[in-house]
């Protein structure tokens, strides 16, 4: 076996081993994902895994030959001569262009269908409207509202396990972003339109806010489509919504509780028979760690007997 062949044989083995080691390191420790609480989270997990395998392989294919060359080929003491004169290899260059192209095309096609599928409407979904503003969140529940009256609203997002939800979103000052890490979805919340109607020369300002009792009518008249994101929550528990787009002084404190309840508890909440934990709201005074209301969350978790994982590891 020639020395070149021997070197290549050794690094091939090392690359295979490193790929596996790096993949496990990334998957189990380094890029550990938070608890998954929605159908989307499990779906997206597949793509995370694909990326982790790719990361492990690409890391190995660069770092192993690099490290091997550093150790084996380095300049020996007393050797002042130059290295072999190898200035390139067109076949090799074409190979390491074409193979990545194939991987990229594969990822692009798979990723497109994957995403399309992820954001397509689910059957029987109900709408919840999310309004973000400096520096808090309000949720409107058209399903539980009486037409013509101000919609039912809450400072906590309450959803039912297994019930597909479409969250429509608007901001009323600056751009915010909706992120619940346990749901794995994020969506910017863009300031809504104040429409100005000028029929017959009269300029009339139309309020497109979710708080407007006649919101549907106004939205239809102006063809207004707020941002939206879809989830099917599947693990009961208490999570937190965090604003992910810089929005000023108290951006970091723009939080809300997100509570996933099973059907019985959800009905109890709809009927007003369930007391929710305190809303993390820093609007008054300087917040400290107490402002996160962690004890209240913990108490609620205990009371609801939420199965360990999410409540204990998170709070």
């Amino acid at each position: 076996m020639g020395s070149r062949t021997r070197h290549f044989a050794i690094i091939t083995v090392l690359i295979a081993v490193s790929t596996v080691v790096v993949y496990f390191l990334i998957n189990l420790y380094l890029f550990e994902r938070p608890f998954g609480a929605s159908a989307e989270a499990s779906q997206i997990e597949t793509m995370f895994q694909a990326h982790f395998i790719l990361m492990g392989f690409l890391f190995a294919i660069i770092v192993v030959p690099l490290g091997y060359a550093i150790v084996v080929f380095r300049q020996k003491e007393g050797d002042d001569t130059d290295a072999p004169h190898i200035h390139g290899n067109t076949t090799l260059e074409i190979v390491w262009t074409i193979i990545p192209v194939l991987i990229v095309v594969g990822f692009a096609i798979w990723g497109s269908f994957f995403y399309w599928d992820l954001v397509s409407a689910n059957e029987g979904e109900v709408e919840i409207r999310v309004q973000g503003y400096k520096w808090d969140w309000t949720f409107y529940y058209p399903e539980h509202s009486v037409p013509g009256e101000p919609p039912r609203q809450d400072q906590t997002l309450v959803v039912e396990t297994g019930q597909p939800v479409v969250l429509t979103m608007q901001a009323n000052d600056v751009i915010h972003a909706f992120w619940v890490p346990q749901f794995r979805v994020k969506q910017d919340v863009v300031p809504y339109n104040i429409a100005i109607r000028s029929d017959n020369g009269d300029r009339q300002v139309i309020d497109l806010s979710f708080a407007n009792p006649n919101y549907e009518e106004a939205a239809e008249a102006f063809n207004y489509s707020p941002q939206e994101v879809r989830i099917i929550p599947d693990q009961p528990g208490v999570y937190r919504l965090r604003c992910a787009e810089i929005c000023g002084t108290q951006h970091w404190a723009m939080l809300a509780n997100v509570i996933v309840l099973d059907t019985d508890d959800y009905q109890a909440w709809v009927n007003g028979e369930l007391t929710l934990p305190a809303d993390p709201n820093f609007a008054n005074g300087t917040p400290d760690t107490e402002g996160y209301y962690l004890d209240e969350l913990k108490a609620f978790c205990d009371e609801q007997e939420f199965s360990g994982v999410n409540c204990e590891s998170e709070y």
Partner: peptide
């Protein structure tokens, strides 16, 4: 990733069998 990959692979190939000084 394609042109970036070409750079990485070419760097590794340059280093391979090179009498590296540190």
């Amino acid at each position: 990733a394609i042109p970036t990959g070409v750079k990485f692979f070419s760097w590794v190939a340059t280093i391979w069998e090179g009498k590296m000084r540190f």
